[in-house]
């Protein structure tokens, strides 16, 4: 019995908790990509850098708060600074929409043109971020480090295996749940949210119904900017902030959005967790779990690992490619919110 519990705790510690955390981060990122796709109908390659920008503003604000001696008790101060990051990112998104994207909307440009434009914005943002905060790693999580320490868990349960939950992991999952609930409430219960869905479903008919496209587009950028700032900050809190990692996040995020069915918010969330758990389950070494679950003292010889951990990120690329090739519409096929 304790063996089974030990095996479960082992899996929880190395797969469940990190998977929920990473999945939440991907889901929030994918939600942003999917929003843009559903309303503006292009794949935004600049989304990773937008996340990076939001995280950077949050970090700068966090430093400023810490200098003033303001902290958030056991929770990371970054949560107090996050609203500033959100506002700055939203303003930045609206600005880019006004000076860059709006022109192409009026031209009725094709999706590839938009894509190339978003690459231009990717360059600008990545330069801007590195110019302002520099290319170095930044750890900005403060407050209590753990919600649950492995040792405490062992003492509490008397098991051999410990379960550690970092504060940043808890914060990530809770924030993600709150944000996702808010988004769904907005889209399904409010007039403005419904008008966004209507626009995404049928642009011409939305126009005929008197829905103002300019307003829908602006709200989309507001939501996307906010989501990006939150996702970027949570990722940075959890894994440490490095400007260059955010470009690498774009593909796993696209993978999440596409797996679920790009344009579909529910799909984006499901996709985030599919990608996160696939990465972990495929690269987890099952050796000790099997040792617990098999009777006697037998221990498997190898690590019993499907893929080496070096290939962790590659898993998301493989998922991405397979889904694109086999079912490009994704699990919850749909192009609309």
């Amino acid at each position: 019995m304790t063996d089974i519990l030990n095996a479960l705790v082992l899996l929880a510690n190395f797969v469940l908790v990190p998977g929920l955390t990473y999945g939440s981060q991907l889901a929030l990122g994918a939600l942003g990509v999917t929003m843009i796709y559903a309303v503006l109908r292009f794949s935004n390659f600049g989304h990773g850098e937008t996340m990076s920008f939001g995280a950077m503003i949050t970090i700068l604000t966090t430093w400023w708060l810490q200098e003033k001696g303001i902290t958030f008790g056991v929770l990371p101060t970054a949560l107090l600074a996050l609203p500033v990051g959100i506002i700055a990112t939203v303003v930045m998104c609206l600005l880019f929409d006004r000076v860059v994207y709006r022109y192409y909307r009026r031209e009725k440009a094709n999706p590839v043109t938009y894509l190339i434009v978003s690459v231009g914005i990717l360059f600008i943002l990545s330069g801007l971020v590195r110019f302002i905060i520099g290319p170095q790693d930044r750890v900005f999580a403060d407050g209590e480090r753990f919600i649950m320490k492995a040792r405490a868990f062992k003492q509490m349960t008397g098991l051999d295996q410990g379960l550690a939950i970092k504060t940043t992991q808890g914060v990530t999952v809770v924030t993600a749940i709150v944000i996702v609930a808010l988004i769904f409430w907005f889209l399904n219960r409010t007039r403005t949210g419904k008008s966004m869905r209507a626009y995404s479903d049928n642009e011409d008919l939305a126009l005929l119904s008197g829905i103002n496209p300019a307003k829908v587009v602006a709200i989309t950028w507001v939501i996307t900017g906010a989501l990006a700032a939150i996702a970027g900050t949570l990722y940075g809190l959890d894994k440490g902030y490095k400007p260059f990692t955010y470009l690498g996040l774009v593909l796993p995020i696209f993978a999440s959005a596409i797996v679920g069915g790009v344009g579909n918010p529910l799909g984006a969330i499901a996709g985030g967790f599919v990608v996160a758990f696939s990465e972990l389950l495929l690269t987890f070494a099952y050796k000790r779990v099997i040792a617990y679950l098999t009777p006697g003292d037998w221990i498997p010889e190898g690590l019993v690992q499907l893929l080496s951990t070096d290939y962790k990120l590659a898993v998301s690329f493989v998922i991405l490619v397979i889904v694109l090739l086999v079912k490009p519409t994704g699990i919850f096929s749909g192009k609309t919110l």
């Binding site: 869905r197 049928n202 939305a206 119904s209």
Partner: peptide, 30 residues
């Protein structure tokens, strides 16, 4: 639309992903 004109186009004249009630609600958007 605000002046009292209303148009049902030939194709794609409903919001397919939205419920009947939501379609009507969108009709009343203005």
């Amino acid at each position: 639309v605000t002046l009292g004109m209303s148009f049902v186009p030939q194709n794609a004249n409903v919001f397919t992903s939205m419920t009947v009630e939501e379609n009507l609600e969108m009709g009343a958007f203005v």
